[in-house]
Simulated scan of single mutants.
Amino acid sequence: MNKLYCKDLIRFSDAMSDFSRVIIITELMNGRALSASWLANRLNLSPQATRFHLKKLEDVDLIHHRECGKHHYYEIKNQDTAMFIESTFNIIPPKECLFLSNTNTKEKFKEARTCYKHLAGSWSVALTQSFINNEFIVIQDNFFIVTEHGKNFFKGHKLLINASNTASVGKRCIDFTEHRDHIGGPLGALLLQSMLQQEWFKQNDNNRELTITPKGRKNLNVLLIDK
């Protein structure tokens, strides 16, 4: 095995060996950019301790920061990094105490949540399989590609309005609670953005859970009907 690879693996393992750093990662997997002060308050840590943990995560390229005035905002580095983190959750699922406060919350988390910037959970997996069955999307290598039939269907439901060609491509992302594919990448991000704009889901700023609205449940069930 390449020695440089071994060193990178050791650095990654070290970065993810601390409870506070795992909490930071799970918070940022919502696709948000969070300030160091927000994270310090969330983790009940001093500013110095929070900055130490953030630097550890930056050093292994899991996160990066952007400056806005006097504040530094931290976020997952990119979509590929988010998918890598989510894939580790498939191997070693996070303990419920990291993001679940009670049984009801646990069920909501499994039903619908954000995975970086796209939809995850049982609804996302069901929708993905329905889109495949109806030939709205096809699998090519490790990607989902929207068909012409799919473009017309999605536009009819206001899910791909003014979409570019790149937005019609989604990555195959394995859902760590359902253990099956859901749609990630640009396509997944655009679908979730459209659903949020149409108020199919309500997003909680403090965690990854999504609440399905009555309007959303009605429209999601329509998407699951075989055409």
Rank of each mutant, 00 (worst) to 15 (best):
N78D: 15
G170I: 05
S46K: 11
I76Y: 00
F153Y: 09
K151D: 08
F89R: 03
L210Y: 04
Q197G: 10
K108L: 08
P186T: 04
I85T: 01
L127E: 03
W200M: 06
M1E: 11
S122Y: 07
R66A: 11
F52K: 06
R113P: 01
K95A: 10
S101N: 13
G156C: 03
T147I: 07
G216E: 07
I63G: 02
G188T: 01
I92N: 09
I183F: 00
G150D: 01
H71L: 13
D205G: 09
Q140D: 12
I145Q: 07
T26I: 09
I145M: 09
N104Q: 15
L28H: 01
G156P: 01
F143N: 13
K56T: 06
T26A: 06
Y116N: 01
E178G: 02
T103S: 15
L62V: 07
Y5C: 15
A40E: 07
G185W: 00
F12D: 04
K110T: 08
W200C: 00
M1T: 15
K3V: 10
E67W: 11
L159Q: 03
L43E: 08
H71V: 12
E199S: 15
D59Y: 12
T105W: 10
N102E: 11
T105A: 15
H179R: 11
C115L: 11
H53K: 04
H149P: 07
W200I: 01
R208L: 08
L191M: 07
R51Q: 14
L223S: 06
F144E: 00
C97Y: 10
M16G: 05
K117V: 04
N152I: 08
K171H: 15
I91F: 14
K117Q: 08
H64C: 11
I23K: 12
L220R: 04
S46D: 06
A120F: 05
N78G: 08
P47Q: 09
R42W: 05
S37T: 14
C97M: 14
E96T: 13
V146C: 01
R217H: 12
V60W: 04
W38R: 10
W123A: 02
N207V: 05
I25P: 02
K215H: 13
E58M: 15
L223A: 03
T50P: 02
E199P: 03
E107G: 12
D175H: 04
K70Y: 10
G150I: 00
F144A: 05
L98C: 13
Y74L: 01
A33S: 13
S46A: 09
S35Q: 07
Q197H: 14
T177C: 14
C173P: 00
N41I: 12
E178T: 08
E58Q: 15
N102T: 09
K218H: 10
L159H: 00
H149R: 15
I212V: 14
R113L: 01
K3Y: 11
K202H: 13
T26D: 06
I25A: 00
N104K: 14
H64A: 15
I161H: 09
I139G: 11
I25S: 00
N41C: 09
T213A: 00
T114R: 03
E111D: 13
A49Q: 15
D175G: 05
G150R: 02
T166P: 09
E135G: 08
L190C: 07
L127Y: 04
L34C: 09
T147A: 03
N102V: 11
